[in-house]
């Protein structure tokens, strides 16, 4: 069949309702008498069906491409950024870990040093009054009067006297540990010690002690 292109386009216009009412009526009259016109209309409908289906598919593919490509691009971009970010975070974590380890080591070192110093000064800080009393007692016990007393008198009485002195002595809380180490400041103790020595001489004259040793 040799197609009349003009007839085909008329059929397309008829199918697409692009004809005026007079044109449509004229074409339908032709359809009633002309087999070519009828076949042209069938071809026109087929052409429109096929082209429309093709355009629909092309449009759908275009939409899918438009939706997918940016997504793929962004996904790829995000993947790259994620790897960079992971590397950056790992490096930063390592740096922080190194600094933390160094700080920890320094802290341990400082703690050890402080502990060592504290151990050296520990007793004075821990019980200053007891240590001062002991030192004063030693000083007092080594004083000449007490030495003489210990040389002459009864050891038991001496011990009792020393204990009595220690028991009767209250440490001065206002004095610091360093001042407590100076025995000359404790004059009341020395006076008491001297008084005790004199009382001891009154009770036990030197000749009696000499006689006893002899």
């Amino acid at each position: 069949m040799i197609f009349d292109e003009k007839l085909l386009f008329e059929a397309v216009r008829y199918a697409l309702e692009e004809m005026t009412p007079p044109e449509r009526d004229a074409f339908e009259e032709r359809l009633a008498d002309d087999q070519d016109a009828r076949e042209a209309l069938a071809v026109a409908v087929k052409l429109c069906e096929t082209v429309t289906a093709t355009l629909d598919e092309m449009a759908e593919n275009a939409e899918n491409m438009a939706n997918r490509r940016p997504r793929e691009y962004f996904d790829r971009s995000f993947a790259v950024n994620d790897s960079h970010l992971a590397t950056h975070v790992e490096r930063r974590w390592r740096r922080r870990a190194a600094w933390t380890a160094m700080a920890l080591a320094a802290s341990v070192l400082i703690a050890v040093m402080v502990a060592g110093i504290g151990r050296e000064r520990g007793p004075n800080l821990a019980s200053p009054s007891t240590d001062v009393d002991r030192q004063l007692a030693v000083v007092w016990a080594n004083s000449p009067a007490i030495t003489e007393l210990s040389d002459v008198g009864d050891a038991a009485d001496d011990a009792n006297s020393v204990n009595a002195v220690l028991d009767s002595t209250e440490p001065d809380e206002n004095d610091g540990p360093s001042s407590d180490l100076v025995p000359t400041d404790r004059t009341d103790w020395l006076l008491e010690a001297l008084t005790a020595s004199q009382r001891h001489e009154q009770l036990f004259p030197p000749h009696a002690a000499t006689r006893g040793e002899g």
Binding site: C48, T54, E57
Partner: peptide
């Protein structure tokens, strides 16, 4: 449809535009 698609690609742009606007 494949043949129509190929022919649509070969059409001059102004003709393809009219086909698109009328049928799609």
């Amino acid at each position: 449809q494949e043949r129509v698609r190929a022919e649509l690609q070969m059409l001059p742009s102004e003709q393809r535009q009219v086909v698109w606007m009328r049928l799609y």
